[in-house]
Design a protein around this nucleic acid. Structure first.
Lengths: 238, 238
DNA sequence: CCGAGTTGTGTACGGCGTACACCTGTCGCG
DNA sequence: CGCGACAGGTGTACGCCGTACACAACTCGG
C-alpha cells in the first residue's frame, strides 16, 4: 500500500460520514461507534476531530444551513420564496436536522442565512425593524413547522390515511362518528393523494402575502432603507 | 405498613412521572432507570405497564394533546385562536414534546384535536374541503414552528443576543460587517427585550387573517356546511 | 384456604459515549 | 541521514442505557 494506505481522518470527513449515516437511519442510527466503523477507524479516533457527539451534531446542523442557496433575485419576495424552498429541500434531505436547527451554538452558515433573510426584509421589502422581526419569525416558523409535519407523514399518504382510519376504528365502534372530519380527511387523502411540495407552496404564498401586508401601502422608497436603522420601540418589555 | 405499603404502580402513574422527569431535564434526562427510581421501583417493573420506552413516549405525547382546551366559542376564528394558544402553552410547558407531536401512532386526544380543528374550518368557517386542509396545514405549521424556535431561545433574550454577538465577533474581526442585520437584531433585542407570547400573537393574527382570506367573500351560508362533504378534486395526484 | 394470575424483582447482555494511557507514523531540523 | 517532538490513531475500561428472561410475592375469586 502506497503512502497513507488509508485516507487520513479529517473533521470534514467525520461530519460528512455522520450526515450520511443520519440521512439513512436517523439520529438514532448515528452512534460514534458506528460512525467510526463506517470510517474504518476505532471509535476514539473521532475525538481527535470533534470534541464530543454534541459538537458533531452542531457541525452537522451548520452543514445543513450551508446547503441553502443564496439567491440574488432583486425581488425580495421571490428571494424569500427561494430561500424558504431551499430550506424545505434541505430539511427534507436531512429530516434529522429539524428538531435542532435552532439549538446549540449557531454556526457561520446559520448566521449568514438569518442575516440574509433580515436583509431581504429590511433592505428589500423596506420593512421597519420590528415588522421585519415579525415577518422573519412568521416565515421561519412556517418553514420549520411544515418540515416537522412533512417529516413524519412523508411516506405513502394513502396508506397512512388508511392506517389512521384503522386507528380510529380500533378506538371503538362509535369512533367513526366521533371524528367525522378526520374520516373525511382520511377518505379524501386516500382518494386523491397529497402533494407536500404543493401544499408547502400554498402556505408559503399565504405567508408571503401576509408579509406583503405589513408594508405600508404606497410606500415608495428612500429613508434608511439601505441599511439597518431602528425606527420604533420594541414590541414589549421582555 | 397497612395493606399495600406502597401505592400500586399504574400506567397513569408511570406516564405522569415520566412527564415530570421530562419537564425538568428534557428527554435526555428521562431514562427508564431514573423513572423507576423516581417511582421507588425496579426498572423492569415499568415494563408491566408500558411495552417499551417508545410506547411510553407516545403516551406522553397524547397527554400533551389532552391538555389542550376545547373552546366552545361560536366564532370559528376565536376558537382557532384559543386552540393555537393552548397548544403553544402546552408546548411551552412540555418542550420535549415538540419534535414528536406528529410522530408515532396518534392517540385519541391527538385525533380529537385535529378533528376539532377541521370542524372549525369546515363547519365554522365554511371552507371547502381543500381550503380547510390548507388552512389546517398552515396553522399547525405556524404553531409547531413557533414553539420549536421558542423552545431554544426561551431563556434570557438580552443575554442571548449578547452571546450571539460574541459568536459573530469570534468569527473574525470583519464579521460585524459581514452580518449587519444580525448585529441590528442583537442590539435591538438586547435593548428592548423580546416577548415571545406577543410575537406569537402577531404571527397568529397574520395566519388567521390569511385563513379568512380563503373564504369566498360575501359567502353567506347553507350547502353542505353542517358536515363533511367533498366538493373538489385534490391538490395534486400525490 | 388454595390455586391462578397479576405485579414487582434480580440478573444479565449488548450497545452507548467517552476518559485515559499508550503506541505510531510524519515531519522539521541538526 | 537521524532523531526528537507531536499530532493522530488505538486499546482498555467505566458507568450509563434499554430490555429479555426466569423467578418471587402479592391479590383475589372460588
Amino acid at each position: 500500500m502506497a503512502p497513507g494506505r488509508r485516507e487520513r481522518l479529517t473533521r470534514a470527513r467525520v461530519v460528512d460520514a455522520a450526515m450520511t449515516l443520519a440521512d439513512d437511519g436517523g439520529l438514532d442510527g448515528l452512534s460514534m461507534r458506528r460512525l467510526a466503523e463506517h470510517l474504518g477507524v476505532v471509535p476514539m479516533a473521532l475525538y481527535r476531530h470533534v470534541a464530543d457527539k454534541h459538537e458533531l451534531l452542531d457541525a452537522m446542523i451548520d452543514r445543513v444551513f450551508a446547503e441553502l442557496t443564496d439567491p440574488v433575485d432583486p425581488d425580495w419576495a421571490r428571494a424569500l420564496r427561494a430561500r424558504a424552498q431551499s430550506m424545505r429541500g434541505a430539511l427534507t434531505r436531512h429530516p434529522w436536522a429539524i428538531g435542532r436547527m435552532e439549538t446549540g451554538t449557531p454556526g457561520p452558515a446559520n448566521l449568514a442565512h438569518h442575516n440574509a433573510v433580515m436583509g431581504c426584509l429590511r433592505a428589500g421589502a423596506r420593512l421597519p425593524f420590528w415588522d421585519a422581526v415579525h415577518a422573519s419569525s412568521l416565515l421561519d416558523s412556517y418553514v420549520y413547522g411544515f418540515a416537522l409535519q412533512d417529516r413524519t407523514l412523508a411516506g405513502d399518504i394513502p396508506a397512512e390515511a388508511a392506517r389512521r382510519r384503522e386507528v380510529v376504528v380500533a378506538d371503538g365502534p362509535a369512533a367513526l362518528d366521533a371524528y367525522p372530519y378526520l374520516v373525511e380527511v382520511a377518505d379524501q387523502l386516500g382518494r386523491h393523494g397529497y402533494d407536500f411540495a404543493q401544499e408547502f407552496e400554498i402556505g408559503l404564498d399565504l405567508v408571503l402575502d401576509a408579509i406583503r401586508g405589513l408594508r405600508p401601502v404606497g410606500e415608495t422608497a428612500v429613508e434608511g432603507a439601505g441599511g439597518p436603522a431602528s425606527r420604533e420601540p420594541g414590541p414589549a418589555g421582555g
